[in-house]
Design a protein around this nucleic acid. Structure first.
Lengths: 242, 242
DNA sequence: AAGTGGTCTAGACCACGTC
DNA sequence: ACGTGGTCTAGACCACTTT
């Protein structure tokens, strides 16, 4: 007998897709509870155990958050615990100081070849370019430059950024319905150029950590490309390997 | 009724501990298959599903590797696919070039305060200090310095390092029975000192990526502290966030 | 054909949070 | 007391690998 299912996909993965689909369409919003496992099992016509396995994988990928006795919730960047989920920078002397974002600029522009390739759009398409600093304990430690596809972030502007209390990703989520799910980063060490050096209070040519990030929303769609320059005099980038 | 189990631990976690214990004592060696889920269920007096959940977590933590139809295996740093599991460096121009380790030095010494704190030993205790370069495509890209507790790595020497084909961790595993399970890294950007600059073929003061790693074996016991300096002219450190 | 891990089900019971 | 997620069981069947 030949293989009947070269593209075999177990039931729980199909359920997983259906749940992601509901998340994408906004049926359940960030921070809200999704239906109980029993209800989902009824709705999809499978056993609770199968729903459970689907939810397990989504929780492992930080899409959902389980809370025993309460329910399962759509994860949100508004949650203080997840607010700087993607920021790996820690103070050398342990202090759990939360960074404060200071927007500098918000421009419209056209995608260059590199931005276009990373964002999966055509060169010349409209994009937004954001610049900001991140301050720890009121000292500037990071300078970031973000490239956003124009269609998804229509109407973003500097005042909006200035008024927003919270992380950039929580703004994306609340104002534009864009939920960041995962990201990849490429790190290098570079020498500080004059303008950057002045802003970070380091000498020209001082070593900085360059962090290039591509962030994805549902369906592995890239929606933000950014480059950060981190001053690592008093901070380091932490990583867990397993 | 008061809480009866403030330290409640589900059965599958206890089974997990028993499996880890068997791994620690060397009952199943790296690369070998462990007993089938049915056998383990019989041995521990639980259902297959409970064993399964324990093994699931161990596989998620890269302690075990499941292979459908074949069995479950103790993961090993000898496996070519896992050989450089902890090395996050990639060539900018994609080439999947495997690095080659070139040992430089293997000294005995005494733990300074920093090494002692990181390795969880007393200052002054004997340690080994290793130095080596990592070459990609025969060009030096990384210079590493490793600090190892003396008791665990008794007898390590430069000839042993030179003769060994494979990663350092596969040597630890084969010759000293030390299996690295996880690690934490702290990254910073630093300026190249003269001696290092010469070895990496960069200018004095050039920016380098400093990677400080603490690696743990079973039971979260730290057994290697190292500092690497990476030239990121043609390579970058890659990271996945979720 | 036999053995392994992988999926799916149905049901019982436990731990946790809320009413 | 009730509803939620979390654990544990027993059994059936599927997919993959080897004999």
């Amino acid at each position: 007998m030949a293989h009947e299912s070269p593209t075999f996909s177990p039931l729980y993965r199909q359920i997983k897709s259906l749940i992601v689909q509901a998340l994408e369409t906004g049926e359940w919003l960030p921070g809200q509870a999704i239906p109980s496992e029993q209800e989902l099992a009824l709705r999809f016509g499978v056993s609770q155990g199968t729903v459970r396995k689907a939810v397990d994988e989504l929780a492992a990928g930080n899409m959902l958050v389980r809370r025993q006795g309460k329910g399962t919730f759509v994860s949100t960047h508004q949650d203080p615990r997840a607010m700087f989920r993607f920021l790996r920078l820690k103070a050398i002397n342990g202090g759990p100081v939360l960074p404060k974002s200071q927007p500098l600029e918000c421009m419209r522009g056209k995608a260059g070849p590199e931005a276009a390739r990373n964002l999966g759009i055509e060169p010349g398409n409209p994009i937004h370019i954001l610049r900001r600093t991140l301050r720890f304990d009121s000292k500037p430690v990071v300078i970031d430059e973000m490239y956003l596809p124009g269609d998804v972030f229509q109407g973003i502007n500097l005042d909006m950024l200035r008024e927003w209390q919270g992380s950039l990703y929580s703004l994306y989520e609340s104002r534009f319905g864009v939920r960041m799910v995962r990201a990849t980063e490429k790190l290098r060490a570079v020498a500080a150029e004059r303008a950057v050096a002045d802003m970070l209070n380091v000498k020209e040519g001082a070593p900085l950590l360059s962090v290039e990030r591509l962030a994805f929303t549902y369906g592995d769609k890239p929606v933000e490309w950014r480059r950060g320059l981190y001053s690592t005099a008093d901070h380091f980038y932490i990583n867990e390997l397993s």
